[in-house]
């Protein structure tokens, strides 16, 4: 027995770790990394490879992106959508995170914190759908407002840009609350006390102390919101209707409606490049936040 343990000690750590790691990483290779590589390959194909039709390697899919302004415009509008959603999420989420970290105490804090992050672990599609119930004309918002207001108004936000914004903010605001809460909680109360006793106003403390110290959390949360929103397609489809055409919905179309997979792969890969640039730029800040 002791001989065995000695031999185990002599076995190189990499060899000992391999059997434990291999199954998980083989799975990730087959289901994540090979597909991502295959998509790059596909994006250079003139027609669908392996479908029996003749195909060759070409740059035409990328040429299509750069030659017509349609795709660049869509990417830009997705970018704008992601920026707006992120901004709203920060504006709505940061104050809540502050109250959670500095005002609520003990069990109340735990309960409220759980309530904020709970929806984000439930089905995103269903939560988007639930807004359709609220926003459509003759829906709840409409009926409720008409019941209390003396004049007749017709709220029909459904199938509009604001509806897409509302749905996405609803989906992603918990990320911001979570990351801001973590960095706000790390701020020592005695620093704030010290600033106050030195005569700093609340606004000064917020501007010069709290926001700078919470910045890594705000930025980390912003990336967590921005990246999935720029690739969103289901939310604009359900809540945006005909106004909900974005870069993500065009990619979806290439794969499920138009069946131009090589073009879809090229569009996906361009999006992936944009996402990776954002992640790379943010990673030093994210590392500081965690």
């Amino acid at each position: 027995m002791s001989g065995q343990s000695v031999s185990m000690g002599r076995r190189s750590p990499a060899k000992a770790a391999a059997p434990l790691l291999l199954p998980a990483y083989l799975w990730l290779i087959v289901a994540i990394f090979l597909p991502l590589s295959a998509m790059v390959f596909f994006s250079f194909a003139s027609d669908m490879p392996f479908s029996g039709k003749p195909w060759s390697l070409t740059l035409s899919n990328y040429a299509e992106f750069f030659s017509s302004s349609v795709y660049a415009t869509l990417l830009l509008s997705s970018f704008r959508l992601a920026l707006e959603v992120t901004l709203w999420c920060v504006l709505l989420g940061f104050p809540a995170a502050y109250v959670l970290a500095k005002v609520f105490k003990g069990r109340t804090r735990e309960a409220v914190f759980l309530l904020v992050i709970l929806p984000f672990w439930s089905n995103g599609l269903v939560r988007i759908f639930s807004w359709a119930m609220v926003l459509r004309s003759g829906g709840i918002l409409d009926t409720a407002l008409n019941a209390v207001l003396p004049f007749k108004i017709n709220i029909d936000l459904m199938y509009s840009y604001p509806a897409v914004i509302i749905g996405l903010v609803h989906s992603y605001v918990p990320y911001i609350v979570l990351t801001c809460y973590l960095s706000l909680q790390a701020i020592d109360d005695s620093i704030i006390e010290a600033a106050r006793s030195l005569g700093a106003s609340r606004l000064t403390i917020l501007k010069r102390l709290i926001i700078p110290l919470a910045l890594p959390g705000i930025l980390a949360g912003s990336v967590l919101v921005f990246v999935p929103v720029i690739g969103s397609f289901m939310e604009p489809r359900i809540l945006g209707g005909r106004t909900g055409t974005f870069y993500g919905t065009v990619i979806e179309d290439q794969f499920v409606a138009v069946f131009n997979w090589p073009l879809g792969a090229a569009l996906s890969f361009i999006l992936l490049a944009v996402v990776l640039i954002i992640l790379a730029a943010a990673s030093p800040i994210m590392r500081r936040a965690t």
Partner: peptide
């Protein structure tokens, strides 16, 4: 390498899987 499956939008991962699994 554990981060890409979490950080890359599912639209990209999903379409990539479709392309590869089909291929």
């Amino acid at each position: 390498l554990l981060l890409p499956p979490i950080a890359i939008p599912w639209l990209i991962t999903g379409t990539a899987m479709l392309v590869f699994f089909y291929g």
